[in-house]
Design a protein around this nucleic acid. Sequence first.
DNA 1: TTATAAATTTGTATTGTTTACAATGCAAAT
DNA 2: ATTTGCATTGTAAACAATACAAATTTATAA
Lengths: 140, 140
Amino acid sequence: MTDRNALDTLQRYGIHPSVQRIAIMDYLLKHCTHPTVDEVYVALGKDIPTLSKTTVYNTLRLFAEHGAAQMLTIDEKKVCFDGTVTPHAHFMCKRCGRLMDVQLPGCFQECQPVGADFIVEETHLYYKGICNSCAAKANA
Amino acid sequence: MTDRNALDTLQRYGIHPSVQRIAIMDYLLKHCTHPTVDEVYVALGKDIPTLSKTTVYNTLRLFAEHGAAQMLTIDEKKVCFDGTVTPHAHFMCKRCGRLMDVQLPGCFQECQPVGADFIVEETHLYYKGICNSCAAKANA
DNA sequence: TTATAAATTTGTATTGTTTACAATGCAAAT
DNA sequence: ATTTGCATTGTAAACAATACAAATTTATAA
């Protein structure tokens, strides 16, 4: 059972805490919607009016570098962030743009790259297509 | 053996050919370096001086929509394009930024998403890490 | 406590990619 | 020859992301 407390999470990843960093990590942990920088910035701006967008950029990048968050480049328009760092895949609906978590296929552990002449630090698996709710709308 | 002729490729994917489209597809097929829009634009500008960057954007997007090319969003800085559409994975070196093709693990065909309540149209698998040549440099 | 140094945050200016859109060009069909 | 429709071009604009320097906060040492 992983600890989803913002402060603890920061400390576990060796990130020095601050009001802004705790708030941003807290947002990530509580909103599994894969928010963009702007979404985090707008949402937290209500509580921290002085918050700078640059801080959100820097902080999310910092989290990703320390492995405390995942940077997702699935949508070519904007980078999204994911506070869940346990291995999982993603699905993006091409119609509504929603991004959701997907359990990894069971066989995936054994799926190592063939003839790899490189050191793997991150593995990314994602699917694109049409989500159920968009498919249902199309039939109406 | 797939046909790597530009005109034939366009027709196979139902894309109406034009001088620009043929040139762009030809470039993709002959340069497996996963070029960006700008790289294609600069390279073809020598032969087609009137070429517009907008056309390159539109055309590569069109190719991707028709399945004649793959849009890669691995590097968060820029979108790359891949003329190879047979299933394969990618590796990006975090140090030198190079992007290369990787053979899919054999078990991957059976790797379907678990409990998928969506229609999969594309599957993307890639790795990030350090390539051999960068790792060698680090040891010097 | 006070002074000093280090780290963090802020805000503005800037860069660079991508899109929107209107005008133009071109080729096939009538 | 005219029309129709798609493709291309080029400019303007939107927008994400970064650079940077000033301001603020926090930590450390005297």
